[in-house]
Nucleic acid binder design. Structure first.
Lengths: 121, 121
DNA sequence: CGGGATCCGAAAGGATACTG
DNA sequence: CAGTATCCTTTCGGATCCCG
């Protein structure tokens, strides 16, 4: 039965998750890190649509939430590697699920366009 | 191997999915609809943190993406019911996955640091 | 290389009032 | 009941410059 769970407080844990994945780029960053650890520069190069400022910000948030681990490799030049924690891998599986859903249900030509979106069988 | 897939174009389908779930409240709405069809007023009452304007906007987007179906029940009073489509149920399973992740990995005390729910005063 | 600090326009979203 | 319209504040995020 639907109740008041979401009234003012929501399920706090779920909300934390929502706010995390809800932020722009976060899901993309996680998706890339699913392929393995990467350095800041790599991430930045791979995710060219994401500015360095945003990338930095998102990584910091993910680190605070213990979703990614930041490892400094002494230099020079200093290198910094980011990798998913166990918690992050678990979240990554959710991201994979989203990715799968997109492959299965979102058809390429339609996208955000209006027009006729063909429904699958 | 990590490549340029995300350079400027990204995987378009995945990006569509990200933009959908990424919008504030969308995930919450889907989570509620997982419990079954609901009318606008019900959704609004359940999701008290979400303004009617936002709820309306998100529902319209979800409808355009064929994630939810809008059914008008003639009145008066006119009633409008929203329910997940098959596509929506599939996406809902992703949302459930996120919910599960939150239950399993997000510890309650940590939530205070994350931007709290905007209390309406 | 891997960021942080600042500025500023764009966009999201809340409050309120109104409508069919 | 199920939304719209309008206004106005808050936040987001891109650009740019700087630093260890």
């Amino acid at each position: 039965m639907r109740d008041q769970r979401y009234s003012t407080e929501l399920c706090p844990r779920f909300q934390t998750a929502v706010e995390l994945l809800g932020k722009r780029w976060t899901t993309l960053v996680l998706h890339v890190l699913l392929d393995g650890p990467a350095r800041f520069g790599e991430l930045s190069a791979t995710l060219q649509v994401v500015s360095e400022r945003m990338l930095s910000e998102r990584l910091k948030e993910l680190e605070e939430q213990k979703v990614v681990e930041r490892r400094v490799i002494p230099g020079p030049p200093v290198r910094v590697e980011y990798r998913l924690t166990r918690k992050g891998e678990a979240l990554g599986r959710v991201v994979r699920g989203l990715s799968k859903w997109a492959e299965e249900w979102v058809d390429p030509p339609a996208l955000a366009r209006s027009a006729a979106v063909r429904q699958r069988g």
